[in-house]
Structures are given as structure tokens and as C-alpha cells.
Design a protein around this nucleic acid. Structure first.
Lengths: 237, 237
DNA sequence: GTCAAAGGTGTACGGCGTACACCTGAGACA
DNA sequence: TGTCTCAGGTGTACGCCGTACACCTTTGAC
């Protein structure tokens, strides 16, 4: 066998382990997390890996393929639903898990559902979702309704969460105050209700976590309540 | 007054009306609708307007500013809620209207909420939203819950709708069949529940409109049911 | 020891957003 | 009517981007 050089096991200097798809994808994920989708370029990525840009193309077909792989890594982070634990807790936990993943990787939000070639983790995740609901007695049609509505809520929430420029309830107050000062005075007069909300949010703070739980409970409650009706395969109203 | 040349009133050849911000934004919207966000470049846009690329920068500060303006045009297409018509129909119609706008301009979905400088139509829209709910007796806190959840649903639904590669129920069948044939045979065995859904959707067809209405009714029902509770400003569960 | 295949390199091309200096023509005012 | 000003349009150029293509190097099987 070839002797391993005793020096660095980590890639550095003249010695560097051969690249493979996994390390390229992992590094790309880290880069996107750090610098956003705009910062994710073949050149910066290759530099992080200590390699020339074109070397990446030995491991990914093109940038689209790179994104496909990255998205499937994100899917792999999402907890799989499991009918054994009951559809409600299972779906709730999966939704929370999906939101957390989208929070860790905000650049992924628009892309999770948009892949032309869904990866393995993506397929596995959706398969488990269908299995959980079908296994819990939901009709085929109902299963589609529920996944559609629940996912819509989580995606949409993550989208809003990404947009607002604060992370904690305390920060939200500062941001609101700043916005109020930035806004031209005529805007305040023109949009009184908006002004009220910004004021109140600034005072009371805005907590994404409880906001998410509230909405999630709302949707799950509604599903629970409508379940027997949907079991009977009623046509939608 | 200066005599207008009798020839073309439309810009062409050597004669061309002076550009202004509105026409630039409108043409950019049309270009994005036609070719997507990727097709929206300063060079292609300028060519459509019969002008050199740099000319655009006399009317928009940069591409970000261009996008800001385009997004506000989309907001302007969204029907404003109005407390007079009752919160439920008003919110329902606004949600439908928002979905339609996002369907006309799929490129806008990730951007509507992400603007650092919200435009006038955007502010007006949200102001009307708050006004409608507050005016219908919802507490401040509840108003935030409802807008957050409802918007999340609409954005998320639009996102899913954009992703799936068919528009009509009939097409959905063909697409499903195609997907089944493309998929490697081991995938079918590994994901039985997913397979079932694709099969059933292929057979029964999938209609976005009724799917949207179902989810929307679900959320609105839940809001209606919880309204008295939320009026009392209960803390979230 | 030989050799094919896989992995990494270097160069180059067309497209992007846009900074900067320049030219032009329309409208204001004498 | 002649002049001036300055908003609007132009041309050139720079540094990014993704990636095609030809080339070299290393690896592992035989």
C-alpha cells in the first residue's frame, strides 16, 4: 500500500486529498450559507477547495447540478415523518424541522421544490410524508390536500422570515424604530394602519418561533377537524 | 408647440420617444414574464427599448432598483382588501388576487417580501390589509397572526405551483406518466407511497384552482373559528 | 512496467452589471 | 432668436461570471 505522508491529513499546501462530489457539495453548502447564493460562484468555491475552477467540473456537471446536489443535502437534514408517532406530532415535527433547515440555509427556500431532478433525500422525504398520512387513514386526495397546504405554510413562513431583517424580538423593536425614522413623513400619514403595526411590533417585539407555532397549530387543527369529512372523499367546496 | 412627426407614434427607427422610468419598468416586467429572471439583463432590456445599455441607468439606479420598481408594479396588480365587504370575502379575494398576480409573474415570488425598500403599492397593500382586519374587530396581535399565516399560505402555494411543470389537470397526467418512465426502476420500489401518488394524480388529474380554494378555505375557516379566542389576546398555545 | 482512465490545469470566449467620460438635443430664458 | 444648461443617450472598458476545450499528471489494475 502507498505510505500516507505523516504531515497533514487535512488538505493544505502541495498535498491535498483528491476531491470528490461529497466534499464539493459540502463546501458549496458552507459557502452559500456564509455568502448567500450570490457568493456561490465556481471560482470562489474552487479557491476554498484549493483547486482551479475547472477542476469542479470533474465532479459536477454544471452549476445546476451543483445546486441539485446542495438542495438534496438540505432535504437530508429534514426529519422524516413516521406514522408510528401519530400523524399530528409527526407532521408537526417535520414542519418544524423543515423550517429549521430553511432557516439554516435561507438561500435554499426558492429552490427546494423547483428541482427538475429531485434527489434521493427529496424523494425519500416526500415518500415518508405520503406514507405517514396514508398510513394514518387519510384518503389519497386528502393526503395531497394536507401536504400541499402544510408545505405551503412552511415555505411561505420561511420566506417571510428570511425577508425581515431581524432575528430576535428585541432586535425587531430597533428595526421598527429605524424604519419609522427612515420613512418619509408623508408615508406615515398615508398608511396609518401600517404605522400602528410597526409601532406595536416595535414596542411588543415579534417572535418568529411563537408566530410559527401559532400558524402551524392553526393549520393542523383545521386538518384534524376536517379529517373525517375528507376521509369520505368529499369534493372540495 | 413642437410639431409631432406624422409618421410613427410608436418608437422606431431614428425617432423614439424619450425614455422614462415607467416605460423601462413596464418593459422589464414584460421581459421577465417572457424570459424569466435569467433573461432579464440590462443588455436585452435596452435592446427591446431601442437604446444602448447604459441609457437605462439614467432611469434606474441599478438592477436592484429596477427590481424594486418591477415588484411594486406587481403589488399594484393585487386587489386591495376592504373592511366594508367583510374580512372573510375581502381576505379571500385578496389572496386569490395575489395568487393570480404571482401566477402571471412567477419570477416575482421570492422577491415580493424581500425588498429592502418597499414601494408605494406594497405599503398601500399592507396598510389596507391591516386596516381591514383591525377594522373588522381583530386585535392587533391577531391581525399579525392572520396576515402572517395567510400570506405564508399564498406564497408557499404559488411557489409550489410554479415548480410543478404542468398547468392543467390533463397535462398533469401526461407529466406523471413521463416521470414514471424516466425514474430508475429501483426508485419505484424504494418509494412506494410516492409512486402511488404519482399514479393516482396521473389518473385523476390535479387541479391547482380547486387545490388552492381548498387550502384557502381551510385557513380562513380556522381563522374564523379562532377569532373570538384571539380577540381576547390569548397567548399562543 | 505498462497503460488507460480519472482528476487537475491553463487558456479563452461570450455574457453580465456598471463606472466614467463624452456627446446631443430639448427647453428656459435673454 | 440666440445662447446656455443639463437631462438623456452613447462608447469604451473593467472585472466578474459559467464553462468549452485541449492539455498534463496521478492513480490503480493488470
Amino acid at each position: 500500500m502507498t505510505a500516507q505522508p505523516p504531515a497533514a491529513s487535512r488538505p493544505r499546501g502541495r498535498e491535498r486529498a483528491r476531491l470528490n462530489r461529497e466534499t464539493v457539495l459540502a463546501e458549496a453548502l458552507a459557502l452559500a450559507d456564509a455568502d448567500g447564493l450570490d457568493g456561490l460562484g465556481m471560482r470562489p468555491l474552487s479557491q476554498r477547495l484549493g483547486v482551479v475552477p475547472m477542476a469542479l467540473y470533474k465532479h459536477v456537471a454544471n452549476k445546476e447540478d451543483l445546486l441539485d446536489g446542495m438542495i438534496d443535502l438540505v432535504w437530508a437534514e429534514v426529519e422524516m415523518p413516521d406514522a408510528e408517532r401519530g400523524w399530528r406530532t409527526s407532521m408537526g415535527d417535520r414542519s418544524r424541522s423543515l423550517r429549521q433547515a430553511l432557516k439554516r440555509h435561507p438561500w435554499a427556500i426558492g429552490l427546494m421544490e423547483a428541482r427538475l431532478r429531485p434527489g434521493f433525500a427529496n424523494l425519500a422525504q416526500h415518500n415518508a410524508m405520503m406514507g405517514c398520512l396514508r398510513g394514518s387513514g387519510f384518503s389519497f386526495r386528502t393526503t395531497v390536500h394536507v401536504t400541499s397546504t402544510l408545505d405551503a405554510f412552511v415555505y411561505g413562513f420561511a420566506l417571510q422570515e428570511r425577508s425581515l431583517p431581524f432575528d430576535t424580538a428585541e432586535q425587531s423593536g430597533d428595526v421598527a424604530e429605524q424604519k419609522l425614522q427612515d420613512a418619509p413623513p408623508e408615508a406615515a400619514a398615508a398608511f396609518p394602519h401600517l404605522l400602528e403595526v410597526v409601532r406595536e411590533l416595535g414596542a411588543a417585539g415579534y417572535d418568529y418561533d411563537t408566530e410559527f407555532e401559532t400558524g402551524l397549530a392553526l393549520v393542523l387543527d383545521a386538518v384534524e377537524r376536517l379529517r373525517p369529512e375528507w376521509r369520505a372523499e368529499l369534493p372540495s367546496p
